[in-house]
């Protein structure tokens, strides 16, 4: 289904943050203890859908991200499920220690939504293109890290967060992104999913890059390379079994993310494979650089974050390790 849509270029587009907004609104309807806090970016993070529906359950903290998460921690201590949103560059960018101490070590189920993550933020430039959020959140004990592929999955992830008892971080992007999942696509925190089965190379992708990974797999298919695409919307805890199983079959792995590979999904997969199943690996992502202003498409190209780059990475692996596969 997805593949056919991709081929005909018929995919609807919607921004992932809108999926979060819709999911939060639904979570608010289903769970009375869900509350929301924002740091002066209610509309930008699409939290306005919840704030308009439940004004008495919405707290506007102003431009104060340290307060955002710590007030959230206090609300959680009183039995609330607080969703707190801002731009990822500011939350968790600015308030990491507060998240560490008052949410993770304190083990309060605060739900942190970081919007405008990734390079595709575009014109705002490097200050606002958050690329280190996965690494920051992944390093924290107790924290769950999510990066949905599209708005439909973002809504599901947000609903799942509302009943998860742990601290959660969800990574959201600004740009309209192709919708590649449907209401029926399975989602569960902690699970990765095979979006396309294959046997020659594994592509593990997260967030917006799963669309690119699917497109890359189509390109590779034209060269008779069967790529398996594993979508990992949960970066922590990583679905190790799924990735190890696939790597054991294909013996070659590419990762893809719109974030720093250092400490990101690429880092996570590299740690997993090198400890448990050493496997040739190429990580597609941002390589220890900051972003800059530009149109999303030209930035993705410039920073090597397109389906072409993923396909090239797969070719590179197949070229260099073919002897291992045929031998």
């Amino acid at each position: 289904m997805t593949e056919m849509h991709l081929a005909r270029g018929e995919l609807d587009k919607e921004d992932i943050r809108l999926g979060f907004g819709k999911g939060l609104l639904e979570a608010g309807k289903r769970h009375e203890n869900v509350v929301a806090l924002c740091a002066d970016l209610t509309e930008s993070t699409r939290m306005n859908l919840f704030a308009d529906a439940f004004p008495e359950r919405f707290i506007q903290v102003g431009v104060a991200e340290q307060n955002l998460v710590t007030v959230g921690s206090g609300l959680a201590a009183m039995g609330k499920i607080p969703f707190v949103s801002s731009y990822a560059a500011f939350s968790p960018g600015r308030n990491w220690e507060q998240i560490r101490t008052t949410i993770c070590l304190n083990d309060q189920p605060v739900k942190i939504a970081g919007s405008h993550a990734g390079i595709s933020v575009g014109a705002d430039g490097a200050t606002h293109q958050m690329l280190e959020d996965i690494a920051l959140m992944r390093a924290l004990p107790n924290m769950v890290v999510l990066a949905p592929a599209d708005s439909v999955e973002a809504a599901k992830a947000t609903l799942a967060m509302a009943t998860d008892e742990r601290p959660n971080y969800i990574r959201l992007t600004r740009e309209a992104t192709p919708v590649i999942t449907t209401d029926n696509t399975p989602f569960a925190i902690g699970k990765a999913f095979i979006f396309r089965p294959g046997s020659d190379v594994t592509i593990v992708s997260t967030g917006t890059m799963t669309y690119q990974a699917m497109a890359a797999a189509q390109m590779l298919a034209k060269d008779y390379i069967r790529a398996e695409v594993i979508h990992a919307p949960t970066i922590k805890p990583l679905d190790s079994d799924m990735i190890l199983d696939s790597a054991a079959r294909t013996r070659l792995v590419v990762t893809a993310e719109e974030a720093q590979i250092n400490g990101g999904l690429g880092g996570a997969v590299a740690e997993l494979l090198s400890e448990q199943l050493p496997t040739p690996l190429v990580r597609v992502g941002v390589r220890d650089r900051f972003g800059e202003s530009g149109k999303p498409e030209e930035l993705l190209k410039h920073f090597g974050l397109t389906h072409n780059h993923i396909a090239m990475a797969a070719h590179h692996l197949l070229m260099n390790h073919r002897h291992q596969r045929t031998g």
Partner: peptide, 23 residues
């Protein structure tokens, strides 16, 4: 609460007071 790093207790207390009000 867990504390040590300074300056975050009052904001947690604010969240608690808000939570009690909502409850």
């Amino acid at each position: 609460t867990t504390s040590g790093p300074l300056g975050s207790g009052l904001s947690q207390a604010c969240g608690m007071a808000l939570g009690l009000r909502m409850n």
